[in-house]
Amino acid sequence: MSDVPSIRVAGIHKSFGPIEVLRGVSFDVPRGSVVSVIGASGSGKSTLLRCVNYLEPPNAGEIYIDGEPLGTRIDVRGNRKPRSLSEVNAMRRELGVVFQQFNLWPHMTVLGNVIEAPIRVRKAPRKEAIAYGEECLRRVRMIEKANEYPARLSGGQQQRAAIARALAMRPKAMLFDEATSSLDPELTDEVLGVMRELARDGTTMIVVTHEMAFAREVSDRVIFLHQGVIEEEGPPAEIFGAPRSERLGQFLSKYRK
């Protein structure tokens, strides 16, 4: 059982009209490990993450969560059948997503945001959802803002609340889509700090990021995406210390100033 990776990304292709954004991307995320995806804007990083939880269904390839295909199932005759939308919904709640724009629901308090999906989707009893939601808020140091509305919070606070919202679903893995890219520099640290703690606690994570220092520090593996394919991948020390491909070298040089 332990040799089955938590998430397996297998041969993902994705096109928008004539433009092929992902051209066959495959990698594994072992349980409890952190995989960072780096690359220039337009390299397909965010699309890749949206494909992992089927917000963008891939044109080809499959995502496996604990060995279970997300978008297809094997029927009794052994044929692959696409899953219905409700089945995909049931599968993807196993993945907690943190968006670049936070995407908190503005008409709910912070705690309301955190307990919404556990109650409505997981059918957790309200009391239980609140107790665990508060625990998640404590973890991201947002418990004192539990009854505030998102509009009254800073970007960093909103993003930490969004992380708590994702954690409250008890996901098998967390997906971070440029979680700090729309934050002012002085607010990124509080969010990266929370993400660092999650990584240290053994959370399985895929992190799409522009924060090279952070990727180097927390990742078990780093993937460099270029024009929709994995140009280079390896442990952070290799990727950042001794890049093999010219493109990765060029890309990293822009971050060393």
Binding site: F99, N103, R120
Partner: peptide, 8 residues
């Protein structure tokens, strides 16, 4: 997107 991502 957030709703869909959480399985709603």
């Amino acid at each position: 997107d957030a709703g869909r991502a959480f399985g709603m």
